[in-house]
């Protein structure tokens, strides 16, 4: 089957590799047999089967993360030809060769194309990106959400913590403490949810701390890069307005916590 699909064409690939966390990076070139409908992950799988560089040197298989293979988990993000995106939904036919694969260096690189996105998950914990429903007794049903609002909120809920917006953002890096666009948009999502809104002041105060909302520099790269088309910059501007109000409430000691 695979032989029948073999077209004889070779795909040229350049991969920025790194053997250990914090180690030095180097480039390796590969040539992989082309098949119809190939995505970037299938290139990496070919290299895994036969880890030999373009000039015939035997090497270690390239390491990368993947899970769902349908652009909903966010694990397989990497920088492909300069743009951060998911390697599962990036098709070889749409790329110019040589295809250049790099890790998203805004995160700590674990090995090769694998990065540690833990700062994003820590940020979600910091901003309480959930609907609090736990109690010592049955709290019953929450308030209903208007259908139009639900449809709008569904778009924000598509965030898969893939890190592409973080990689695209000029203010997210190892030298800056900015929390980044993805967790900020989640604050807007959960502050809109009727039950989630019951602790909206806590979320706003969390993003009004150091490295928070105000560190956004409005380059608007995040919204251009987001694979899910989430209106990240609209979320940030909306939170800016909410934070302006919250700032005055905090300063004057208002008791209007969540209304």
């Amino acid at each position: 089957m695979q032989l029948a699909a073999n077209t004889g064409r070779m795909v040229k690939v350049e991969i920025i590799r790194q053997d250990t966390q914090g180690g030095t990076s180097y480039t390796q070139k590969f040539e992989v047999p082309y098949r119809h409908g190939m995505n970037v992950i299938s290139i990496l799988m070919e290299i895994q089967k036969n880890p030999v560089t373009a000039d015939g040197q035997k090497t270690t298989p390239v390491s990368w993360d993947m899970n769902c293979l349908e652009e909903v988990c966010g694990a397989c993000s990497m920088v492909i030809n300069g743009r951060p995106r998911q390697s599962c939904s990036t098709l070889v036919d749409q790329l110019t060769e040589p295809i250049r694969l790099e890790p998203m260096k805004t995160f700590p690189v674990i090995r090769d194309l694998q990065v540690d996105r833990e700062r994003m998950f820590n940020a979600l914990k910091k901003v309480k990106a959930w609907v609090p429903i736990d109690g010592t007794y049955d709290l019953g049903e929450g308030p209903r959400m208007p259908e139009g609002k639900r449809q709008w909120a569904y778009e924000l809920s598509k965030c898969m913590t893939c890190g592409v917006c973080m990689e695209a953002c000029p203010n997210v890096s190892e030298k800056a403490s900015f929390i980044g666009p993805a967790p900020l948009s989640q604050v807007r999502l959960f502050n809109t949810h009727p039950t989630g809104a019951m602790i909206k002041d806590q979320r706003l105060n969390a993003i009004m701390g150091d490295g928070g909302l105000a560190n956004c520099g409005n380059s608007q790269n995040c919204v251009a890069a987001c694979p899910k088309g989430i209106p990240l910059t609209t979320s940030i501007a909306s939170l800016n307005r909410a934070a302006t109000v919250q700032m005055f409430r905090n300063f004057f000691g208002s008791d209007h916590f969540v209304d």
Binding site: G82, S173, K175, A176
Partner: peptide, 17 residues
């Protein structure tokens, strides 16, 4: 503290940034 990246993202807003 910014890491400019207009080479990779040459949008109008990123240039303004």
């Amino acid at each position: 503290t910014a890491t400019t990246n207009t080479g990779r993202f040459s949008t109008y807003r990123n240039w303004m940034f």
